[in-house]
Write a protein that binds this DNA or RNA. Structure first.
Lengths: 246, 246
DNA sequence: CTTGCAGGATTGTTGAACAATCTCTACGCT
DNA sequence: AGCGTAGAGATTGTTCAACAATCCTGCAAG
């Protein structure tokens, strides 16, 4: 799934030494290389970064030449991305970058709220086992976002904010929640490119992410969950407003 | 996705007449006919009904002969099922029916609880728009389960119970929750086949489904959500116990 | 018992070919 | 002009055969 490496898979190898696990992770990263998945990686980046706008059709013959893979392999890459929600198939007409609308915004944010709020609230039950080191990835994401904001690189701010939420979900150690969130955020990125004003869309949430992180660090999970709930409602409204104003 | 027809996709066609939607659904069902998806349908049944046990490898050349499709098409079918969680790919080694363990049970049930409880609780906010007719599919599932139980057909009871929960999620009109639930229940079915005692696994939940349905019909959503939460905790424990006793 | 090395089997990938379907243009009709 | 239609051209859906890359098995050597 491309970005999986940034987050714990949730599949904990109970009986093994730590170093053995890191080796296993490296092996898995090597194995990941199949032509179809490499092609999918390239296309995924093109789509999430906006090079391929929503509604665009992906021609098979053109892409076989650019990506230097056969049509069959390319179609396998298409399938992979279709399952992530980054492409849609129209039978006998081809694959397209989906055009999401306001109903998708509502649907995606409903899922986000359910999952993220539950993860944060659930941390209270497993507080003792959660070492502070696990918040470090979130810390890094916040700082990356702040630095990108200072440099006026707003798409980068958006990416860092996304990773913050992916890492947040990762705290639950649920392989399936991680996978769902990966798809969910990819679809969200698709929506961002329809919006003309990335700054006012992302800027408010840099500080709110930091505030959320501090609440987690202070183990005020109930408060954090409540804030996050409102946070996501606000974010949804902002996106909807930007959408209607396009 | 095979079973999609049984549930609203959540993609509501706002401006259309009801009959126009049913026609569109029929067209979509015709269009659905691609060789890969037909092959996937057959394999899906074999897996969920237990003909292909967990851990089994699916040989490409054998299946091309049985299913009468080319290797490429078969591999596309494999991808479809992989995405549903019914198959796993091991690079250069082939596709296998996954062997789920207790950690998967915990993971799956965590997701189920989050989603299903939220859907039920969320019904309170949209009570006026929810016509009683929308509970009819749930009613049918409960009756199907009861009839199957009287006939001692316990796998059929399990299937009907599954459909009950799929329809329950369907009440939220969320395309993504429906899709997630489809995969989730497919994986759960995979776990059921490891269990030797289908009766004691499914029987208690026939009555509990009916009780839940009556609470929904009476619009006691808060109560229903609380009951469902406990219901799913109990179900998880039952599955874990059966799993350890295997 | 472990290590290293064939040999056979299976998967990964390719390119070409043909069938099915869609899109677009041009034509004829009213 | 407006409308429906037929056909050409392009694109996708599917199959097949072949080769490359990788894995598994069994056996021999240390």
């Amino acid at each position: 799934m491309g970005d999986d490496a940034v987050v714990s898979t949730g599949e904990i190898d109970h009986g093994r030494q730590a170093w053995l696990r890191t080796v296993a992770a490296d092996v898995a990263r090597l194995d990941r290389s199949s032509s179809a998945e490499r092609a999918a990686d390239i296309l995924r980046r093109s789509i999430t970064e906006g090079a391929l706008p929503p509604g665009a059709q992906l021609s098979e013959i053109e892409l076989t030449e650019v990506l230097e893979v056969s049509r069959n392999t390319l179609r396998e890459a298409f399938r992979l991305l279709t399952h992530e929600g980054l492409l849609v198939y129209k039978l006998h007409r081809g694959v397209f970058v989906p055009e999401l609308d306001e109903r998708d915004v509502v649907d995606l944010y409903r899922l986000r709220r359910v999952l993220e709020v539950d993860v944060v609230r659930g941390l209270a039950d497993r507080d003792p086992e959660l070492p502070a080191a696990r918040l470090e990835p979130l810390q890094d994401d916040v700082e990356t976002a702040e630095a990108a904001a200072r440099a006026d690189r707003w798409p980068a701010v958006g990416t860092a904010n996304m990773r913050f939420h992916q890492h947040l979900i990762g705290l639950a150690d649920s392989a399936r929640m991680n996978a769902i969130t990966g798809r969910l955020l990819a679809e969200l990125r698709l929506l961002f490119h329809v919006i003309a004003t990335p700054q006012e869309l992302h800027e408010p949430y840099i500080a709110r992410n930091r505030a959320l992180l501090e609440l987690l660090d202070a183990r005020k999970y109930e408060q954090a969950a409540a804030d996050l709930h409102q946070y996501l409602l606000d974010s949804e409204q902002g996106l909807l407003a930007a959408f209607r104003a396009r």
